[in-house]
Simulated assay, not measured.
Amino acid sequence: MVRSLLDVDDLTATELDTVLDRAAELKAHGDGQPLEDQTLGMIFEKPSTRTRISFETGMTQLGGHAIFLGPDDIHLGHGEPIKDTARAVSRYVDFIMARVFDHADVVELAEYATVPVINGLTDDAHPCQTLADLLTIRERFGGFDDVSVAWVGDGNNVCQSFVVGAAMADLDLTVATPEGYGIADNVRKRAAALGTEPETTHDPEAAVADADVIYTDVWVSMGQEDQREQKLADFEGFQVDDSLVGDKTVMHCLPAHRGEEITDDVLESDNAIVWDQAENRMHAQNGLLTWLAEQE
């Protein structure tokens, strides 16, 4: 059976540990070229700096090759059904990574592909970011025991995957969002089924009071530009600034809108580990790719 990663709980808790262990090992020592002569097809409906560079460089490090397939290069859902694209591309490549808007599209890709499909981001989930986040927290604190994280901001796709990943890692998590911007009920239920449902609040100061880590993301995600003015008003009081941070560690998946969800001073401070997160996208994905290659 072909294994794919559409969200982080497509892995078991044990498999998650294995992928993170593999990522840490590859980061520390490398592992030759375990994916020599293998190819990753990278489908992009949404542009990205970190996703493209981390996957493409990672495949090179692993001895393989990556092909960028932008919206002008293929007919994903436009002129050709997604299921046909999935079956045809599977005949050429060993893995497919898709960064798309509609989560249903990546689900359909995985249904019809005969190679592993990796969700590089959809409007509902961003599991590769969660793998990098967990790897970064583990590095920073030596594990997950007694680590408390506060998410401050929008209950968006990054937040929702992190909620699930935090439950799998048994991380203590509080999510602070404005009213109407919380995590979806099905995400809360998945986290609860995995063992750890997050606390939720509309008060950022209460959320971070006992936290070791504050995590935030943009308030206006790609494709939501028409909601910008409304969101800026709704998120007043949720900015991660010096007064909220104190001596706590700060995470952000990037790109950041400096001066909105996070101040420039905080992002440039020694509290921020955002560049470790960015680097760990590649290492976490390398761990995932090599693990997926062994599941066939």
Rank of each mutant, 00 (worst) to 15 (best):
F141P: 07
R140C: 06
N157W: 07
A132K: 07
K189Q: 15
R99C: 04
R138H: 03
P198I: 13
T136C: 01
A191P: 07
E205K: 13
D146R: 07
Q129Y: 01
A169F: 15
A125G: 15
F101M: 14
S161I: 00
H202S: 15
K189L: 15
P116S: 00
A191Y: 13
E179A: 11
V147N: 03
P204Y: 15
V106A: 07
F141Q: 06
M168S: 09
H126E: 09
D123Y: 09
G120L: 07
D123I: 04
F101C: 10
G143Y: 05
I137Q: 02
H126Q: 09
G195S: 07
T200G: 14
T201G: 06
E197W: 08
L135Q: 08
A184I: 09
D185C: 12
T177N: 08
N156L: 04
D123A: 14
R99S: 04
V117F: 05
A191N: 14
N119I: 05
D105T: 14
F101Y: 14
G153K: 09
Y112E: 11
V208S: 02
A193N: 13
D145Y: 04
A104S: 10
D203L: 12
T114C: 01
I118V: 12
D124I: 08
T130G: 10
V107W: 12
N186R: 09
E111A: 11
S161T: 03
D123N: 14
E205F: 12
G165C: 03
A113Q: 12
I118S: 03
R140E: 03
A176Q: 03
A193E: 13
A98G: 08
I183Y: 09
H103F: 04
R99M: 03
A191V: 10
V152W: 00
F101W: 15
D170L: 11
L121N: 11
A207F: 02
G195H: 13
K189Y: 10
E111M: 08
A191S: 08
D185A: 14
F162C: 01
A125H: 12
G182L: 09
G155S: 04
I118D: 05
A167Y: 04
V164L: 06
Y181P: 02
R190V: 10
E139Q: 08
A176V: 03
C159I: 00
A113V: 02
G182A: 15
G180T: 03
V147C: 05
N186Y: 15
A206L: 10
E205S: 08
P198N: 08
S148V: 11
A104L: 10
V107D: 12
D154I: 07
T136W: 12
E205C: 01
E111R: 13
I137V: 04
T174K: 10
L109G: 11
T122D: 07
W151I: 00
A132E: 08
A132L: 07
V208G: 01
G142E: 10
T177E: 02
V208A: 02
A167C: 03
E205A: 13
F101S: 13
E199S: 14
T196P: 05
Q129H: 06
